[in-house]
């Protein structure tokens, strides 16, 4: 590097020239990358993670694999397809002692399902989302023996929309999908299976 007195305007030395050239090349490269990536980007809408209830195998990974504890996945209840059964297989363990709200009779480990009497013999079942951990135990009972009105959904008020959903990575049924931001839930209107 030549010795340049600071009073005279410095001529462009070799290092400066290389630096400017590299910066220009880097800007061009970034521009090209941006252009290429812009062809692969969507301008209007984003995508979010969601569970396809038809593929869910109620393995329980949603409760444990999410980066959030408790999970962003919770059980939802589709009332129009619920049978309002007295013996709800999503609510009661197999062969319950009695059809009451006793903890030993409930399948839900956190007592997140509320059982409300409507009229004989119908009971309404509501999910308390603050308590639900997304373990899918009720989903299994309801889908196997009932109408399948309990199913898991990613709740977008909690989901952080990770680059790589850590539940999707371990999902046993390959049920996780990226769905458009404008239509972020897969709501059941009929029973699956």
């Amino acid at each position: 590097m030549p010795d340049v007195p600071s009073s005279t305007p410095p001529p462009v030395n070799r290092r400066q020239f290389l630096r400017d050239g590299t910066r220009l090349a880097a800007m061009t490269g970034l521009g090209a990358l941006l252009g290429l990536a812009a062809t692969r980007t969507s301008t209007a809408r984003g995508y979010v993670w969601q569970i396809d209830p038809a593929r869910c195998v109620y393995c329980g990974n949603c409760a444990t694999a999410c980066v959030l504890k408790p999970s962003a996945v919770k059980c939802v209840q589709s009332y129009p397809i619920c049978g309002y059964c007295d013996l709800c297989t999503g609510y009661f363990v197999p062969e319950p002692n009695g059809l009451n709200t006793g903890a030993e009779n409930q399948v839900c480990p956190t007592a997140a399902i509320e059982r409300v009497f409507i009229e004989d013999p119908y009971y309404e079942y509501n999910i308390d989302e603050d308590l639900c951990i997304g373990c899918a135990k009720c989903v299994e009972g309801c889908t196997r023996f009932g109408n399948g009105s309990f199913y898991l959904q990613v709740r977008h008020d909690r989901c952080l929309n990770c680059n790589e959903c850590s539940i999707a990575r371990v999902c046993a049924g390959d049920a996780f999908r990226r769905v458009p931001l404008t239509d972020p839930y897969v709501i059941k209107t009929t029973a699956h299976e």
Partner: peptide, 18 residues
């Protein structure tokens, strides 16, 4: 199809939504 057809309520029960 649904195993247990959704009941027809006699009381004025209003069904919730998801």
């Amino acid at each position: 199809e649904l195993r247990f057809p959704p009941p027809e309520f006699e009381t004025d029960y209003v069904m919730g939504g998801v």
